[in-house]
Amino acid sequence: MLSIQNLHAAYGKVEVLHGISLEVPKGKVVTLIGSNGAGKTTTMRAISGMLKPKQGNVRFDGKDVTGMDSFRIARAGLAHSPEGRRVFSTMSVKDNLLLGAFPRFTRSRPRGDINTDLEKALELFPRLKERQDQLAGTLSGGEQQMLAMARAIMLNPEVVLLDEPSMGLAPILVDEVFRIISRLKERGVTMLLVEQFAAAALNVADYGYVLENGRISVHGPAESLKNDPAVKAAYLGGGHQH
């Protein structure tokens, strides 16, 4: 479904990704874990077109989308929920969600039933349902994070990129975010998840990749990574466990 081969990416002269390859099969949840600065967000940005890769390619649903504009990649059905809660603060929660479906209104994505999907999104995120008429800027940080996720899903995408969905959230909201990811998985939504809580990410994922200094150091079924002594020592100590 999503295939990344030998991807190199840089900011100016500083190369951050040194030839990474990964696969996200249809209907699966794949997680990318690694310490801060390993290149996780850069990987997401290079896939979604926010950053043009220097080398390598990104294939999505059989099409080469390497270096294409973000909006074209989104139209093809790839939704990116970026880190740091990018929401339209002067618009209501509901309008933010409808904006996520914009390519469907313009027919550049299959339209489907947008109102039904809006209901489904609000049902998945009960906190947003209660606040659908509020301005997004008045939501708490955790609620804005949920709104960014819900908006990505409103594209009715083939693949969702979730970049640090639990970043800066209180533990109770982290649990809720992972519960929502599990429910999306049950619905067959294909996801690539970048996450600081490695244990929680590996619990929900089918397959995992560990990124170290811009290279994939180890990868395998999530279950085997959870039991890998090196992964355990580096990423699964203390922290937030499920």
Rank of each mutant, 00 (worst) to 15 (best):
Q196M: 06
G37P: 01
G12E: 12
A199G: 05
V204W: 11
G67H: 08
K13D: 12
G39F: 01
V30W: 05
N203V: 03
T116M: 05
K94N: 06
M154N: 06
N213C: 02
A222M: 06
K94S: 12
L184C: 06
G62K: 08
G112Q: 11
R179T: 13
F88R: 09
R107K: 15
P53Q: 07
L169D: 10
N156E: 14
L236V: 07
E164P: 13
P103I: 08
S166H: 13
A9I: 03
V177L: 06
L32A: 03
T90V: 04
T106M: 03
V231S: 06
L17F: 04
P157H: 09
K28G: 01
V24Q: 09
L155V: 11
M91I: 07
L2F: 09
L32T: 02
E223M: 03
L122Q: 08
Y207L: 10
E223P: 00
L97M: 10
H219L: 00
K52F: 03
S48Y: 03
L128Q: 07
N213G: 06
A199W: 06
N115I: 00
R86K: 15
V174M: 12
G12P: 11
G56A: 11
Q5H: 14
I114E: 12
F178G: 14
S108D: 08
K54E: 10
F88P: 13
R215N: 08
S35G: 13
S217L: 09
I73L: 09
T190I: 08
Y209P: 10
R86Y: 02
F60P: 00
K232F: 01
D133P: 00
A136G: 08
M1S: 14
E186V: 09
N6K: 13
P165K: 09
S35Q: 03
T42M: 02
L135S: 01
I180P: 09
A101H: 07
E143F: 04
E123S: 15
R215K: 14
P171S: 09
I172S: 13
L211G: 15
N203L: 04
D163Q: 04
G208L: 07
I172P: 00
V218F: 02
F60V: 01
Y235E: 01
Q196H: 09
S89G: 15
E15G: 07
L169A: 08
L162D: 05
G208W: 03
E143Y: 05
L184H: 10
Q196G: 07
E223W: 03
M91A: 10
Q145T: 00
E15W: 01
A38D: 04
Q144E: 14
K13P: 12
G238R: 14
D117L: 04
L155T: 10
D113H: 13
A233Y: 00
L147P: 07
E176T: 11
F71C: 00
R179H: 14
R187G: 14
